[in-house]
Design a protein around this nucleic acid. Structure first.
Lengths: 240, 240
DNA sequence: GGGCGACCTTGATCAAGATCAATTTTGCCA
DNA sequence: TGGCAAAATTGATCTTGATCAAGGTCGCCC
């Protein structure tokens, strides 16, 4: 794990700093120079390999993680080990349940991930002082709530085929958002098991649905993770 | 529908006023006298019979509803009519998706319901001015997000028996929260169809699970809606 | 380049819950 | 109080997705 001082001039915390790459979605411009200085003093840039845990379920929350690159999965586990993924986060989301003493879930790197870690107190102080930052975080929370409720429909009322199509569409829209037309190309940021745990299915069922999408000419798969969507319209039609 | 001027002295908007019945959970004390006067001028108290819609899916949001009595269900519907309930709201929640032009879901009275309706602009102006109110609404949003993610585990990974037990426990904790010991007594605020739509099941499956809980001596049911939980511990043990 | 382990696919069978089809119960109103 | 429609229960059967069981593929490290 690479931990280095955070330099304000080469700042790449997408959600909190000015010179970020993903300016259009992040918190850039929300902070004034003083606030940026304060932030840069307390922030550390950290890399996590795929599979590494950022925050454990029911553990104390000491810091928030600003997601710069990669995909983070949020999951919950029943006592007997059954697991459900309850959300995916993409850059430039803030990872971590605001204001909670204990994290209600596990946050884990789904792919290799780069974050900027901000101590809890630092961020919460900034939120107090900065209305723009506050509004951004409120908007992120409300958006996550919308997404969670959308996914409840998927979990409760869709068939296995519709579930897998919905997930592919969700991932495509985050990882290849600019693309026009019918095609989308991307690498799945998660294993079949993760997908099953997100969809409330087994890996076998997920695999069979992938095979069906392939057979029906809607996608091609190479090397397990590389997906090409040939007909976005047909994929959408399978989402229910 | 009974619409009457809202009188500040007999104010009973639990979440926004001072003399509310559910002081411990609401927004009482968040507003100063000026703000209360502003609010009282624009607020209307409204009663909705069970089944009546407060806000429709994909319709323009013109006002928020402060829930004073009863239970509101939030639902989403797929094109072919499949329905999923994505949340329940109890007094003194604020009903309505903050800051959205269009409501992402339907809000409907599950039982008979009393609300205070606040125009969108009025509440949003108050939020700007009042940090305590702002924090309360942020906390409600974050709590709803936690609840939605908890429910995703129920929808994705629990069996029918565990789902029904989880719902009974959820309702018991809201409708008979003070009770000590092993017993809880309450009236279900929703039909078997609503419960099925919340759990991602059919009414037949819900009914069979109720019969099983009865047979196993965990609950008694009278008149379809009146529930007595005989052993809270056994009910909890069935939640997974 | 070969070998090993993790991950994925495919097939056969099983079971939980859906569907279809009657009854029964409840609430309501005349 | 009786009658009726809506809601709930119960039973028989079917279907979807889970489970069990082999193989196959991929990626990585020596």
């Amino acid at each position: 794990m690479d931990i280095s001082r955070h330099d304000i001039h080469s700042c790449d915390i997408p959600s909190l700093c000015k010179s970020c790459e993903v300016r259009h979605k992040g918190m850039c411009g929300a902070l004034n120079p003083d606030e940026l200085t304060l932030l840069s003093r307390h922030t550390r840039q950290i890399e996590h390999p795929s599979g590494e845990e950022l925050v454990g379920e029911s553990t104390r929350v000491e810091a928030y993680d600003n997601l710069m690159r990669g995909v983070v999965k949020l999951s919950k586990t029943l006592e007997d080990g059954r697991q459900q993924i309850v959300g995916l986060q993409f850059a430039p989301d803030l990872v971590g349940r605001l204001y909670a003493g204990e994290s209600p879930m596990t946050a884990e790197a789904a792919s290799d991930v780069e974050v900027c870690r901000v101590p809890r107190a630092t961020l919460e102080r900034l939120i107090e002082r900065n209305p723009a930052l506050r509004k951004r975080l409120m908007d992120q929370s409300l958006r996550e709530l919308d997404e969670a409720r959308d996914w409840m429909v998927t979990l409760g009322r869709k068939t296995a085929a519709e579930k897998v199509a919905s997930l592919l569409l969700l991932i495509a829209s985050h990882l290849d958002p600019e693309a026009a037309g019918e095609r989308r190309i991307f690498d799945l940021p998660m294993s079949r098991l993760d997908m099953a745990d997100y969809l409330g299915l087994t890996i076998e069922t997920v695999s069979r649905q992938f095979s069906r999408l392939k057979k029906d000419g809607i996608i091609t798969i190479t090397a397990n993770r590389h997906i090409e969507v040939l007909s976005l319209a047909k994929l959408q039609a399978r989402c229910g």
